[in-house]
Computed example of a mutant assay.
Amino acid sequence: MLAFAWDGITSFSVVPLRFITLTGFLIFLATIFMSFYVLYVVFFTDRAVPGWASTVLPMYFLGGVQLLSLGIIGEYIGKIYKETKRRPRYLIEKEL
């Protein structure tokens, strides 16, 4: 039943693709804000851990950019999928 539910969620909607795009964008923004925090700690306090920022921040940054890129590519694939269904762009309610 879980496989059936998963097919129902992912087969007829682009919402999971938009969720991936949003997640990538949020991780990217969090990395930017975290970079400002790390710069603040390095320049204005003495609590900086050597090597932490240069290791962790690029991983988060690249992960966020990758998720954002995958989400954008997924949006294009979702639009292609909608077009291949060949559904009409409008519905005729009644003919005269």
Rank of each mutant, 00 (worst) to 15 (best):
L2P: 02
A3G: 11
F4P: 00
F4I: 05
F4R: 14
W6I: 09
D7R: 14
D7M: 07
G8K: 15
G8C: 06
I9P: 00
I9D: 01
T10D: 00
S11R: 13
S11F: 07
F12A: 03
F12R: 12
F12H: 10
S13K: 05
V15Y: 07
P16R: 04
L17V: 11
L17D: 02
R18F: 00
F19N: 06
T21M: 02
L22T: 13
T23L: 14
L26H: 07
F28V: 02
L29S: 14
L29G: 09
A30S: 15
T31F: 08
I32N: 03
I32F: 13
F33W: 10
F33M: 04
M34Q: 15
M34V: 08
Y37N: 10
V38H: 11
L39Y: 15
V41M: 12
V41F: 03
F43L: 12
F44L: 11
F44P: 00
T45S: 15
D46K: 15
D46W: 12
D46V: 07
D46T: 15
R47L: 09
R47V: 03
W52S: 03
A53R: 06
S54K: 11
S54R: 13
V56Q: 12
P58I: 06
Y60L: 15
Y60K: 05
F61Q: 12
L62F: 15
L62C: 13
L62N: 14
L62G: 07
G64C: 01
G64E: 01
G64D: 03
G64S: 03
V65T: 07
Q66K: 12
L67W: 09
L68S: 09
L68D: 01
S69Y: 06
L70N: 08
G71H: 06
I72N: 05
I73N: 05
G74N: 06
I77G: 02
I77K: 07
G78M: 03
G78R: 00
K79G: 00
K79F: 01
I80W: 08
K82Y: 02
E83I: 01
R87Y: 01
R87M: 04
P88L: 09
P88W: 06
R89W: 02
Y90G: 04
Y90A: 15
L91C: 03
E93W: 01
K94V: 04
E95G: 04
L96E: 11
